[in-house]
């Protein structure tokens, strides 16, 4: 099994006091707890911090951990047989550290010591898996492969890491922030406790064209100035295929044109809308002839785009 330096996880020296351990945990939990943190690696970091704290805050577990000696983080090691006899008593005969994680070892230590093998029902652990999908996959539905390693007790009460390979169909209608619950597919319960649940947390990957808000999609629609003035009909790519969109004469930048039911499908058979956000695009290079025409337009046009901002503010009620 791989050694983990729990003291280093909390940024502490090995002789740290109980108070130091608590304080370090609180400080790091505030920074990395996935419910309150925006750090990109928050979930991973918090798991590491919580695992270290669960062991070091308990004097017995800390003593057991300290007796494992000091190794480099990630270094392969096995707890010596004497350690297993001292800390696991009768359980040591059925216990094998093979294929286990250090956290499993201490969870097992807790279960064996705290309840003396008594048949108290223990619910299985819930698992959450992040499932990032593309907007195209959300539109059409998709299939994903999940490979999870779950700690489980076998029929003899031995703890094992068991690989589970699942295939899950994400139905169309999934969108950012939605969650699928798979009842009973989390960790196995013990002594009649219920099995944990597996949650799939759906997120949408950033897309080069669309921005999703719930089941609605937003996209930019760049127009030339004359298209906005005169109106036009343009082809717009939507997730369901290209459609023609009529842009009315006199459209302006920032305006949204709604294409009903062209967004993402909803689970109940409906659809969100697609909004085209108009943008007036300006050419960065113009020919002499174009420049001359723009000059001519500037001379004859009475249009004042700053009429609102340059007018003297009126104080009269």
């Amino acid at each position: 099994m791989k050694y983990k330096d729990y003291y280093a996880s909390l940024g502490l020296a090995r002789g740290a006091s109980d108070g130091d351990i608590k304080q370090a945990y609180r400080r790091l939990a505030r920074k990395y707890h996935p419910d309150v943190s925006k750090e990109p690696d928050a979930e991973e970091r918090f798991k590491e911090i919580a695992e270290a704290y669960q062991t070091l805050k308990d004097p017995d577990k800390r003593a057991a951990y300290d007796q494992l000696g000091t190794h480099a983080s990630g270094q392969e090691f096995e707890p010596p047989p004497s350690w297993q006899h001292q800390w696991q008593g009768a359980d040591a005969d059925t216990f094998s550290a093979e294929g286990l994680d250090l956290s499993d070892l201490f969870a097992h230590l807790h279960a064996a010591r705290g309840h003396g093998g008594a048949a108290r029902p223990m619910p299985g652990q819930d698992f959450e898996v992040a499932v990032p999908i593309t907007i195209e996959e959300a539109y059409a539905g998709t299939e994903i492969d999940l490979d999870l390693n779950m700690p489980e007790y076998d029929e003899r009460g031995r703890l094992r890491r068991v690989p589970h390979a699942f295939k899950a169909r994400i139905p169309k209608g999934a969108t950012d922030g939605q969650r699928l619950r798979l009842p009973g597919k989390g960790g196995k319960g013990r002594n009649g406790g219920r099995n944990g649940d597996l949650y799939l947390n759906i997120s949408l990957r950033p897309h080069p064209v669309y921005r999703a808000v719930g089941h609605h999609l937003y996209m930019d629609l760049p127009l030339a100035a004359w298209e906005a003035v005169l109106g036009t009909s343009v082809e717009v790519a939507t997730p369901g295929g290209a459609v023609r969109l009529k842009v009315p004469a006199g459209s302006h930048g920032g305006q949204q044109l709604r294409l009903p039911r062209r967004g993402l499908p909803t689970p109940k058979g409906g659809s969100g809308d697609l909004y085209a956000v108009l943008q007036i695009a300006v050419p960065s290079v113009v020919s002499e002839q174009e420049r001359a025409l723009y000059r001519q337009l500037a001379e004859i046009s009475a249009f004042d785009p700053r009429a609102q901002v340059t007018r003297e503010p009126s104080h009269a009620g």
């Binding site: 699942f166 169909r169 139905p171 699928l180 798979l182 799939l200 689970p267």
Partner: peptide, 27 residues
């Protein structure tokens, strides 16, 4: 061999009683 997961519930569509909510959340 992959196990196909079929019993999936959209949280958005599923309603829970108070005791189910307590059991599932662990509160």
């Amino acid at each position: 061999m992959r196990v196909e997961l079929t019993e999936m519930l959209w949280l958005e569509e599923h309603e829970l009683s108070s005791s189910e909510l307590a059991a599932i959340s662990g509160l």
